[in-house]
Design a protein around this nucleic acid. Structure first.
Length: 391
RNA sequence: GGAGGCGUGGCCGAGUGGUCAAAGGCAGCAGACUGUAAAUCUGCCGGGUUAAUCCCUACGGUGGUUCAAAUCCAUCCGCCUCCA
């Protein structure tokens, strides 16, 4: 069944885990689709890019900045927020939306990525993960149930299940063990979710399985029957060779329930995004636009510009002539270069605004193209200055 | 006038006989970054060459001592501190 019907095996009635979310597909082109995801904090037009605000804000931007850029949902991180300022504090201050001043939908990652990125600071067992704090060495326990509960207390619109995100490369044996654990955690999370009286958002399941097709298949078999409000593809963007994540996307995305939002975690470059949209992904997040902005690598319609390079010293042109963000409307490449050279933080802020704007606009254009049935033309137009696998 | 100290590569600054083209930092040149322990990290950074290498020029100037000097001696130039 998994392999045959191209993602049509479940309908809306099959949603077993209750949530206020409602997703509808508005337009389709092959497996690619544009849709609308209704939440208690507004509607998200998909496909869309979700800027990463780990600690409650995209580094360098305030909540209204992000609204102005057109972001319809922001991603924060449960692990980092649990550490500082703590879930109790946020709850006491009125929940995450109120605390960070963001009125639109919020999604939190569960800490599963920190299983990977902080692998030296955690111990994993069948019941969950124990992290040792970098800040004071204290221990913090994350379980599939506690993660559901914490995200509910934060009041987020999309909660992610706790998963084990294995590194790359990993042998089939350990990858299988990690997957079985993640699949069990999915059941535990679903069970915990079903006990919530009034869920603030929806719970997303995470398809793991590293870079093994049979394991991905296994993940689908385990997760889809649980009836999550949405499905994510995890376990990519963990240092693998360029382009490997695409194979996973191509295999998994079309197999996910058609009537649920599909979220590709952690990818990627503009061409990764375009690839994923074409294969039916609705939601993305990636640190690349914000981090690269701070590091001086700027995405433009003409390719990536490393603004610190000496050749921009006297370049009076706008960063991206085809971009209408406030950075491109107001300053030259030469000035941005100067700000980066001198370490002035407004350079990073201006760069972050532009990069996040570029990503939102990029996916927005794909969305509009999809609605008018010219996705492929749009993709090749947008990527004319980007190589196929790297940027 | 007296006493003492200092001068090192674009800058700051280690080094006080060979293992020194000379630590480290900054600046400079380039690169990386993918569910953010990242305003971070990596490489190059006197000149010429090579696969590794090797050669040249260099630690204020000049002249010595020595197999060998950024390092020791003499002298000159410049700068600084304290006392009068």
């Amino acid at each position: 069944m998994i392999e045959s019907e191209g993602g049509k095996r479940l309908s809306a009635e099959d949603q077993k885990l209750t949530s206020p979310l409602h997703f509808s597909v508005e337009a389709e082109q092959g497996v690619a689709r544009a849709g609308r995801l209704h939440t208690r904090h507004g509607v998200i037009e998909t496909p869309t890019f979700m800027p990463v605000g780990t600690l409650g804000a995209v580094k360098g931007l305030g909540p209204l900045d992000l609204e102005d850029l057109g972001a319809s949902i922001m991603l924060a991180n449960l692990y980092h927020l649990s550490l500082r300022p703590g879930i109790d504090r946020i709850e006491q201050l009125g929940g995450l939306h109120r605390f960070v001043g963001w009125r639109r939908p919020l999604i939190t990652d569960s800490g599963g990525y920190q299983v990977f990125s902080l692998s030296g600071l955690r111990k994993i067992d069948d019941g969950g993960v124990t992290f040792r704090s970098v800040h004071d060495g204290s221990m913090m326990r994350f379980t599939p149930e506690s993660v559901v509960e914490s995200q509910q207390r934060l009041g987020v619109d999309i909660a992610m299940m706790l998963d084990e995100c294995p590194p790359w490369p990993v042998e089939h044996g350990p990858a299988l063990a990690a997957l079985e654990r993640t699949n069990r955690w999915a059941e535990m999370a679903a069970e915990a979710w079903s006990r919530l009286e009034e869920p603030a958002g929806g719970l997303f399941g995470i398809v793991q399985g590293s870079f093994y097709a049979d394991l991905r298949e296994r993940a689908l078999e385990a997760l889809v029957p649980l009836g999550f409000a949405g499905y994510a593809i995890g376990g990519v963007s963990v240092g693998e060779a360029k382009g490997l994540g695409r194979d996973v996307v191509r295999q998994v995305a079309p197999e996910l329930p058609r009537d649920k939002p599909r979220y590709l975690m952690g990818l990627g470059t503009p061409s990764d995004l375009a690839y994923a949209v074409r294969h039916g992904i609705d939601l993305f997040d990636c640190v690349l636009p914000s981090r690269n902005a701070r590091h001086g690598a700027l995405f433009t319609s003409r390719g990536v510009i490393r603004i610190k390079n000496s050749r921009f010293q006297t370049d009076d042109s706008p960063l991206d002539p085809e971009c209408s963000c406030s950075t491109c409307r107001s300053v030259s490449r030469a000035f941005l270069h100067h700000l980066f050279r001198t370490g002035e933080y407004s350079g990073k802020v201006l760069a972050t605004r532009h990069n996040v704007s570029f990503y939102l606009d990029f996916v927005g254009q794909l969305r509009e193209a999809l609605k008018s049935g010219c996705l492929d033309v749009k993709v090749s137009d947008l990527l004319r200055h980007y190589s196929s696998t790297t940027r």
